[in-house]
Design a protein around this nucleic acid. Structure first.
Length: 289
DNA sequence: AATGTTCGCAACCGCTTCCGG
DNA sequence: GCCGGAAGCGGTTGCGAACAT
């Protein structure tokens, strides 16, 4: 699908106005090429960070949050354009199985891809593929159990219809329907509510941090090489005590993750033929360049 | 050809976590 | 230790394009 030009979406929804926007009329909606250039120039000059003050320095009538998002998801020079390749798709699937909706962590393993892009790709392509094959996209388990719950969250959400609500107030993996999947297989690595996400603020690279959020349950099924058996005892929000593990720096975790990704037992073969089917269906993505 | 529906992406929102004072 | 601001994250939604009828 060819995408609209950047300026096409001039007027977007008129939601609530952020506090900082009430005082100065900040612009919203689609970014124009001129704005992009101002932003890119400012970041090139001053570096990333200081998003709050960047708009002023750059001469932009945008909030810092919006500038950061635009830079991270669109303007960064290392962003890779074009369709998600089959191997990337495969990696996303495996990482999602391992990490759940930790888009920033997943993106951290896919050079040039952004969390937003991966999230969108997951919601629009991969979750549908999984469902078409009778697999719950969130739990990576057979759909049968999850489908009973079936309350829909959003008419657009492909997962909702089959797997129930994923609203912020109802963490998907903790819902009865999906929280009590078959006892044996690796748990749906969906360790905490949506907001649990923030726990690893190091961005995609803080894998030690991600370990903490993963929770022991999320690792046991994979051989649990770092974590003591009792590590998950009564820890809130699914986290576990790093102190009880023989961990862990980012490199170590990164290697660990690599081994999980590459190793056979982790590689649940969601799509036995998914590479070929992905090739066939590869209308996705494309569009952005 | 016109109209309706679905799809995909970019952007926004609310929340959590981090960090410095 | 507490508090407030900044940054980051995941979920959600608006909108144009593509597709179907």
């Amino acid at each position: 699908m060819t995408r609209k030009p950047a300026a096409a979406q001039q007027r977007r929804r008129g939601g609530e106005v952020a506090p900082e926007e009430r005082t100065t009329a900040l612009k919203r909606g689609a970014w124009t090429p001129d704005e992009d250039e101002l932003l890119a120039r400012a970041v090139a000059r001053d570096g990333e960070g200081q998003w709050r003050t960047l708009p002023r320095r750059a001469g932009l009538l945008r909030c810092g949050k919006s500038c950061r998002l635009r830079w991270m998801n669109y303007l960064r020079p290392d962003i890779k354009r074009g369709p998600i390749a089959a191997d990337e798709e495969d990696l996303i699937l495996r990482l999602h199985h391992l990490l759940g909706n930790r888009w920033s962590l997943i993106a951290g393993r896919l050079p040039g891809r952004t969390d937003n892009e991966i999230k969108n790709y997951w919601n629009s392509h991969l979750s549908k593929k999984l469902m078409a094959r009778g697999i719950d996209p969130r739990t990576h388990l057979p759909l049968a159990a999850a489908s009973a719950a079936g309350s829909s969250r959003s008419h657009r959400d492909p997962e909702a219809a089959a797997a129930g609500s994923a609203s912020k107030t109802t963490p998907p993996a903790l819902e009865p329907s999906s929280a009590a999947p078959a006892p044996a297989p690796p748990p749906p690595a969906q360790p905490s509510p949506s907001s649990g996400a923030g726990a690893d603020d190091g961005g995609g690279s803080d894998f030690a941090g991600s370990m903490m959020d993963l929770g022991a349950d999320g690792l046991k099924g994979f051989g649990d090489p770092f974590c003591a058996p009792a590590a998950d005892a009564a820890l809130p929000r699914g986290g576990f005590d790093l102190g009880s593990c023989a961990l862990v720096d980012d490199d170590t975790f990164s290697s660990f993750l690599d081994s999980l990704i590459n190793e056979g037992h982790m590689a649940v073969d969601f799509f036995g033929d998914h590479k070929s089917s992905a090739d066939g269906e590869n209308d996705h993505g494309g569009a952005r360049a």
